[in-house]
Write a protein that binds this DNA or RNA. Structure first.
Lengths: 152, 152
DNA sequence: TCTCAACAGAAAATCATTATCATGTAGAAT
DNA sequence: ATTCTACATGATAATGATTTTCTGTTGAGA
């Protein structure tokens, strides 16, 4: 369920290379934002990343975090999960669309293994004639841990 | 693809009955909002409904539309589709979760026929142990009409 | 080391949505 | 039909997440 940290290092360096490719500068804040994004396993919000980065660079502005996240979005290297009732959450590990399961109580977000989504997409294509470019498949409910604490 | 208007009348009266059940008042603005919501086939935004209602009642405030939509949400009689980059869209015809296909060019939203979502939900339940309460299954792309106008 | 476009930080602006509150009115009681 | 009162409306202010703006700073190539 948890990715090996070697993979995370690899992913982090992939992002660094992307920045270099596009000739963006390596500033300490920017690097710290990348690290925070990749090494967080909670699908962090901008606020989450901001607090993380502040521990190392206390003068960091939240605008800087927003700008770096927007940059990664433009590069296609981060997946943005928007919600109407809370701030956006981000996945810099798997920037491509994939399903999520979200706990409505503790706001935990996990990535389930689902193989059927491509079939769904094919079905949609055939039935509607749409050219499908991305998708969002989210399930909302109560995680096992919160179910237990509820029944106390 | 388009529902018969008899069904829409039925749906409209269902909503009116819900209001009566819960002893909410029938104001002209409120009724107009219900009509606009049910009879629109574009999954309208609050702004869309507001403009529609204004044609009949020019002094209507957008706050009134927001409040009526919130009321229907509380009653479980409207489905809210939130987006990070545009205003929420609403479906008062089918208030339960169901898949959508969204054109990124013209912002059209349609309801495809998909039978596989319950299977997906069962799979998620088994794999994660979550108690699933709702879901959001959206596909984003270019509709057939916009594909044509693109190639001109 | 020097130079300068890109960047960081602070604050203001934006946008959708929600809250507030004075006035108006639906609908029950008279 | 008239009155009454709680609820609804409409105008506006507040909110919260995000974006933009502006000014001083800095990464990194010459």
């Amino acid at each position: 369920m948890k990715e090996a940290s070697e993979d995370l290092e690899t992913r982090f360096h992939k992002l660094m290379e992307k920045l270099k490719e596009h000739q963006f500068r390596f500033t300490p804040q920017r690097i710290a934002v990348l690290r925070a994004l990749v090494f967080s396993d909670i699908h962090p919000s901008v606020e989450d990343v901001f607090h993380q980065v502040r521990e190392q660079f206390p003068t960091t502005s939240i605008a800087t975090v927003y700008k770096t996240v927007a940059l990664l979005k433009d590069l296609g290297e981060i997946l943005e999960l928007g919600f109407p009732d809370m701030s956006n959450r981000y996945d810099a590990r798997k920037p491509y669309p994939h399903p999520h399961v979200i706990c409505l109580r503790c706001r935990k977000i996990i990535d389930p293994e689902l193989e059927r989504v491509p079939e769904l997409e094919r079905e949609i294509r055939h039935k509607t004639g749409f050219l499908i470019l991305s998708h969002r498949v989210d399930f909302f409910g109560i995680c096992p841990e919160c179910q237990q604490s509820e029944s106390l």
